[in-house]
């Protein structure tokens, strides 16, 4: 039971943003996709969650072909995507943002329980339930975005640069929570990051992409220690 991506090709008009990417993520594991700006990471996630159509290739989850399915249907199959840049709706309150993730289940008691779980994960959100999301700090917004995805009860969580623009301390807290979601709750996580060191530190496996292709993949610890990769792609 895995997330399986086979020879995926995605185009933006004439530009090939993803040029034949293949990888697998085992159920219950945490995989980090590392790459610089423009490497195709965001396009990859948007294709997996159905926001963008693939030109060629196949994506399957839990043995089922999900290529070309719509995002709203994928949520119902346990796939949640936290898109780039604190994906919350600023005009709605914190509670409404969270409730949004559980709307499709149409079950009030389940929803209340899921929201309680999120408050346990991020106590700071609990104090701000009836505030509008645009009053939150950057870190709190990221927590809210992850919280909203969590309310959807995902079995596969796609995260697009959750550390972007956040203070180091907050980044650490967010990464810990992500790691916890994977280890304790058994959620499979695909984490896209530019912060290579932080992401690989909590990941089981790493996938390094550049210009739309996979340049290396394997055990996260080994990738960190590979000196050739370090200088070429990881930037430290």
């Amino acid at each position: 039971m895995t997330l399986k991506v086979e020879r995926l090709v995605v185009e933006h008009g004439a530009i090939r943003a993803i040029d034949g990417i293949s990888f697998e993520v085992a159920e219950g594991s945490l995989a980090a996709v590392i790459g610089s700006n423009g490497a195709g990471k965001t396009t990859l996630l948007r294709t997996l969650s159905g926001l963008k159509d693939a030109k060629l290739g196949k994506v399957s989850w839990m043995g089922r072909d999900i290529t070309g399915m719509k995002p709203e249907d994928l949520v119902r199959r346990g796939l949640s995507h936290v898109s780039e840049g604190k994906s919350v709706i600023p005009e709605l309150t914190v509670k409404e943002n969270l409730a949004l993730g559980g709307l499709w289940r149409n079950n009030k008691s389940e929803l209340a329980q899921s929201i309680e779980e999120v408050v346990e994960l991020f106590p700071r959100l609990g104090e701000r339930m009836s505030q509008r999301a645009d009053t939150l700090s950057g870190g709190e917004r990221q927590m809210l975005a992850i919280g909203r995805a969590h309310v959807s009860k995902p079995s596969l969580l796609l995260l697009d640069e959750p550390s972007l623009g956040l203070a180091p301390l907050v980044v650490e807290q967010i990464f810990q929570t992500i790691s916890m979601l994977c280890r304790d709750r058994g959620i499979t996580v695909l984490l896209v990051e530019q912060n290579a060191l932080g992401a690989l530190a909590i990941a089981d496996t790493g996938i390094i992409v550049n210009l739309g292709t996979v340049v290396a993949q394997g055990d996260a610890k080994e990738l960190i220690d590979d000196p050739a990769l370090r200088s070429a792609y990881l930037g430290y």
């Binding site: 709203e72 949520v75 119902r76 949640s80 936290v82 898109s83 994906s87 709706i89 409404e96 949004l100």
Partner: peptide, 24 residues
Amino acid sequence: TNLGLALRAAAYNPEIARLSGVKV
């Protein structure tokens, strides 16, 4: 109502609404 929340979310940000399972 839930419908109202879905309508508002889809109006403000259709993409996030879809990712949350709203049939935009």
